[in-house]
């Protein structure tokens, strides 16, 4: 009868680890994703375009592949059950927070609050996965599954990822400065998310001015091969007219109010749950 084995297990930790491999893939995939979002600004000449008019359709098929690869690599090697269950529950809450008709590119209201706070509390990998799964789940509930979904998953993943990458320590009581930083990030994320989703929908929703159809030469349409600044100007106007005053600002305001009012208590609750050791 010896003392036997000794088990010393450190307190539970909730995170989706980003290792060297998955980190590299996440970085490359983000770059690729950015390209797939921003391609309208990168077409160098109308000639190349003429033969590849199917680009938006092809890209809509490529993004899911990239999202799937990144997610499979982030979860490779097994996710521990605590992380997985918390991801599941937070995903459900996020899906519930998204307004019923959030289909397409419409606004996400309070979803960013929890996404940013969870990314902050549990790190960039967790934030990325939570953003992606939240979008997927809310799409299941709101008839939002469509070509836009993988783009939304990627963009929301970036929002969570960014929250996890912000400087400062994530543990302990959040200071005022810390909260202010989160609010600033929330506002930036709200507008950038809106802009990048608009960039995706812009050529699709307005139509593309092509040789067949001249279109109003100076309209808001995307003109392939035009100087990128020119297209950027058109896009800027488009997004200003369609989204900035409405959805994007609404999202920025609701996100910052949510972070101010609920930031600290929610962070407390998240930390507590993650560390809860005893079985009830």
């Amino acid at each position: 009868m010896t003392a036997g084995a000794e088990l010393d297990v450190s307190p539970p930790e909730v995170s989706v680890r980003i290792g060297a491999r998955s980190g590299a893939i996440l970085a490359l995939a983000s770059l690729a994703g950015l390209l797939l979002f921003a391609w309208p600004l990168l077409v160098p000449s109308p000639t190349g375009w003429a033969e590849t008019q199917g680009a938006p359709v092809v890209f809509a098929a490529l993004v899911p592949v990239i999202v799937v690869i990144v997610l499979s690599q982030l979860s490779d090697g097994g996710m521990d059950t605590r992380t997985l269950a918390l991801l599941g529950v937070l995903t459900a809450i996020n899906a519930a927070l998204r307004p019923a008709l959030g289909a397409g590119t419409a606004g996400i209201e309070f979803m960013f609050v929890l996404l940013i706070l969870a990314g902050r509390a549990f790190g960039p990998g967790f934030g990325f996965v939570l953003g992606a799964t939240s979008m997927a789940t809310s799409a299941l509930f709101t008839a939002g599954v469509g070509p836009w979904l993988p783009f939304q998953m990627l963009a929301a993943g970036w929002v969570g990822l960014g929250a996890g990458l912000l400087p400062g320590k994530a543990r302990g009581r959040a200071t005022v400065g810390h909260l202010a930083m989160l609010v600033g990030y929330g506002i930036a994320a709200a507008y950038l998310y809106g802009a990048i989703m608009n960039l995706w929908s812009w050529p699709t929703l307005t139509g593309i001015a092509t040789a067949d159809y001249g279109g109003p030469a100076g309209g808001l349409d995307y003109v392939p091969g035009a100087p990128w600044l020119d297209n950027l100007r058109r896009f800027g106007l488009y997004t200003l007219l369609t989204s900035t005053a409405g959805w994007d600002t609404g999202r920025a305001v609701s996100t910052s109010i949510g972070l101010v009012v609920l930031g600290r208590p929610i962070l407390d609750v998240l930390h507590r749950a993650a560390r809860r050791a005893r079985l009830s």
Binding site: A3, G4, A5, E6, L7, D8, V9, S10, P11, P12, T81, R82, A277, R278, L279
Partner: peptide
């Protein structure tokens, strides 16, 4: 302690 964390001795 595998799930909860903590220190356990004995068999």
């Amino acid at each position: 302690p595998r799930f909860t964390g903590g220190h356990r001795t004995g068999r």
